[in-house]
């Protein structure tokens, strides 16, 4: 299909199909983002006739105190941890979905994976709050079953943030892994088995390398938004819930300091892009 278009002379015939999407991207993403980029270099917002000039002070503010660097590092660590947990939980689920279950059972399990996507993020987080707190669902249920008494109070802690974020993002990992796992030719696995590879060896030497693109795509899809997340840490993290994303939110909401908030956001974007581009060669080799 693609070659036939190129064969008939360039992008021309594809334009009517592309225009709506690109027009939308320009209006909805490129323009506001450019405005934000401009704001990040301004001393004041050009609102109600305030004077403004161009400056680099907001970018300098990032480096002037250890605060933002510490927070950014904490957020990156959070992103890595959440991604790791999503992989540990999501990959086996995707494997079962793609290679073990068939027909109705697969559809049912698939629905359960997708279900969180259909509920509002804020609702999901608040329902976790009900489960995790002392005297909440988890605490009450476990103590009703177990013969001894344990106190479970995960609310307002770092683990609570991890739990909330993993729950929100694990479907991405399941979906991307599912797509690559499903595409693996059964004959390859059968060949490995018949040549004497154990189940574990087959997984490690055949399935995992072939599923790597899905695992990596899922990781990127999860890592990037988690580094900038602010809602989950704020609601579930309590005292430990201050991250890079919450600080950016404060700049926009609490002090109306859009320029600093924008500058911090673009630094985050730059750092994420650097991380992704640095890891690109390694990732390519793995593939």
């Amino acid at each position: 299909m693609a070659t036939s278009i190129r064969g008939r002379g360039g992008i021309g015939p594809a334009l009517p199909l592309l225009t709506p999407a690109y027009l939308w991207l320009v209006v909805a993403i490129f323009l506001p983002l450019s405005a934000m980029a401009l704001f990040s270099f301004m001393t004041e917002l050009p609102m109600s006739g305030r004077d403004w000039s161009l400056t680099l002070e907001h970018y300098a503010a990032f480096f002037s105190s250890g605060l933002y660097v510490t927070l950014l590092w904490a957020s990156i660590r959070l992103g890595l941890e959440v991604t790791l947990w999503c992989a540990i939980i999501g990959f086996p689920a995707a494997y079962v979905l793609a290679r073990v279950l068939k027909g109705r059972a697969r559809e049912a399990i698939f629905l359960l994976v997708i279900l969180p996507f259909w509920s509002n993020g804020l609702v999901r987080i608040f329902s976790w709050a009900m489960v995790l707190r002392e005297g909440g669902l988890l605490d009450t249920t476990l103590n009703a079953i177990l013969p001894f008494r344990i106190d479970i109070d995960l609310m307002y802690s770092y683990p609570a943030v991890i739990i909330g974020l993993v729950h929100s993002y694990v479907p991405y990992m399941v979906l991307t892994c599912y797509l690559t796992l499903q595409a693996i030719d059964n004959a390859l696995i059968e060949a490995a088995r018949s040549l004497g590879a154990s189940r574990l060896q087959t997984l490690r030497r055949v399935v995992l390398p072939l599923a790597m693109p899905g695992l990596l795509a899922g990781s990127v899809l999860i890592f990037v938004p988690v580094v900038g997340s602010f809602m989950e840490p704020r609601i579930l993290g309590g005292r430990t819930g201050t991250f890079y994303g919450t600080v950016i939110e404060d700049q926009f909401v609490a002090v109306f300091n859009w320029p600093l908030g924008a500058a911090l956001s673009f630094i985050l974007l730059a750092v994420v892009l650097v991380i992704l581009s640095l890891s690109a060669p390694i990732l390519r080799r793995v593939q």
Partner: peptide
């Protein structure tokens, strides 16, 4: 913000 980060 500094106080909150110190609290972690």
């Amino acid at each position: 913000q500094e106080l909150k980060v110190g609290a972690q």
